[in-house]
Design a protein around this nucleic acid. Structure first.
Lengths: 219, 219
DNA sequence: TGTACATCAGTGAACGCGCGTTCACTGATGTAC
DNA sequence: TGTACATCAGTGAACGCGCGTTCACTGATGTAC
C-alpha cells in the first residue's frame, strides 16, 4: 500500500494518480469533518483529490460505495485501537478494561469523521456485509475483554458474556456520542467524559459484583 | 393549532395553505424516515406539502431553520413522553424509573425521524439556542427522576444527582441509538432492547446501592 | 533485451436534472372607521 | 353593516449552479514471447 509513486511536495503526478482510493477517502474524511456525514459529494471528493469527476467511478460504484469503504476502514482502525488499549488484559483485567473504555472515547474524539461514517451515515448493513463484519470484529474486542473480566469472578456470580458486552458497548457508545465526540454535536458537561465513563463502568461492575466490597473506595 | 380550515379528503384548499409550517414538518419527517436525516431538501418538502418552492421561505430562513424546528418539536414531544412515563414517580420510584427507561426506547422506536433530527442532524446548538433549551428540558425529566430515586437511598450512599443523570442518559441513549431505533441503522441483537436496558440499569443501581441486597433476585 | 499487445486508470466534454434563491406579483384575511 | 386599506401568505417564472453519470478517448503500466 504505497502512496504516490512520486510523492512529496512539489512533485508532479502523471496521468495515473497511483493511489486514488486512499486520496478519495482522505478527501471525503476532511469534508465529513467539516460538514458532517452528509457533507460531501462524489464530485467534491474527486475535486479535492485533484482528479476529474469521472475518475472515482473506476473505484467505486457510487457515493455509498465510497462511504462504505470509509466505514470499513473506520471499523478496522477502531478494532486495532481498541485491541491496543486492551493490550491482552495486562497488567490486570480491571486496569485494561478501564483503558479500553478510554480507548473508545479517544477514538470518537480523535476521529469524529470516521465515527460518524461508522455509526451515523445511514448505510444499510445488508447492502455492505463486509462493513457489518468489520463492525462485529470491533465488538468482539469488547466481548473478549468482558469474557476475560468475567473469568476473574467467582463462578456463581458470572453474568452472561453477551449481555455484559452489550451493556458496556452501550455505555461507552452513549458517552461517546453524546459527550465525547470531536465535532459540533458534542454536548458540554461539567466533567470529562473519560471520568464519567470510568465512574459508570465502576458502578456497573460493582453491581455485577466484579470488585470485592473490601476494594471499594468510599463513593 | 388547527389543521386546514377546510380539511378532509377531497377538500380544496384556497390560496392560503392555512398550516404550512406543520405541513412542512410533517413532509420533512416522512422524508427523513425514508432516507435519513440528510434525506430531504427544502424544495422537496415544499412539493410534498403541495406548495410552490418559494412558499417555505415565508416561514423558515432555510433548510436548517426547518430542521431546527423539527428538532425543537421533537424535544418537546420527547419531554412529554418521558414525563408521562415517569408519571410523578408513582407508584414507587424504582417502578417509575424502569418505565422511564422504556419510554426512552419507545420514543426512539416510534419516532426514528424525530430521534435522528434531534441527535444526528448535525445542527449547531449555538445557532439554535431554543433547541438546546428544549433538549435540556428533556434531560431535566431524567435528572428529576434520578433525584427522586436518590431520595430513597440512605443519606451516606447518595451519589451526585448530575452524575447519575448523565449515566442514565448515556445508558438509555446508547441502547436506543444502537439497538432500539426504528430505522435501518438498528443493530440486531438476540434480546429485546428493553430487557437489555432494564438489566443494565438494575445492575447499575445495585452498584450504587439503591436496592437492598435482600431484595436482589439471583442473577 | 526488445517489441507487441492487453489492461488499467485516468481525461474532459457533455447531458439532463433538481436545488436554492430571488423577484414582482396577487389572492385572502383582518381591521379601522 | 359596508368599505377601504394594510398585511399576510401564497404564486410562478426565472436564474445560476453543481451534481451524478455517460461516453469515446488516451496515457501508462504490465506481461508474453
Amino acid at each position: 500500500m504505497s502512496w504516490h509513486r512520486d510523492s512529496g511536495p512539489g512533485s508532479r503526478r502523471g496521468y495515473h494518480h497511483g493511489n486514488l482510493r486512499e486520496a478519495l477517502i482522505k478527501a471525503a474524511l476532511e469534508l465529513i469533518a467539516q460538514k458532517g456525514p452528509a457533507g460531501f459529494t462524489f464530485a467534491e471528493a474527486a475535486r479535492a483529490a485533484g482528479v476529474s469527476p469521472a475518475a472515482p467511478y473506476r473505484h467505486y460504484r457510487d457515493r455509498d460505495g465510497l462511504m462504505a469503504d470509509i466505514a470499513l476502514k473506520g471499523f478496522e482502525t477502531f478494532t486495532s485501537r481498541l485491541s491496543a488499549a486492551w493490550n491482552g488484559g495486562k497488567p490486570d483485567a480491571q486496569t485494561a478494561f478501564e483503558r479500553l473504555g478510554r480507548g473508545y472515547l479517544a477514538f470518537a474524539r480523535a476521529e469524529p469523521a470516521l465515527f460518524s461514517a461508522m455509526f451515523e451515515s445511514g448505510l444499510s448493513f445488508d447492502a455492505f456485509p463486509d462493513v457489518r463484519d468489520a463492525g462485529e470484529r470491533a465488538f468482539n474486542v469488547l466481548r473478549d475483554a468482558c469474557a476475560a473480566l468475567i473469568e476473574t469472578m467467582p463462578e456463581e456470580k458470572r453474568p452472561p458474556v453477551m449481555m455484559m458486552a452489550l451493556h458496556v458497548w452501550a455505555q461507552a457508545h452513549g458517552i461517546a456520542s453524546l459527550f465525547a465526540r470531536g465535532d459540533a454535536a458534542r454536548r458540554p458537561i461539567p466533567m470529562s467524559p473519560e471520568d464519567l465513563l470510568d465512574a459508570m463502568v465502576l458502578i456497573y461492575l460493582d453491581g455485577l459484583g466484579v470488585r470485592e466490597k473490601s476494594n471499594r473506595p468510599p463513593s
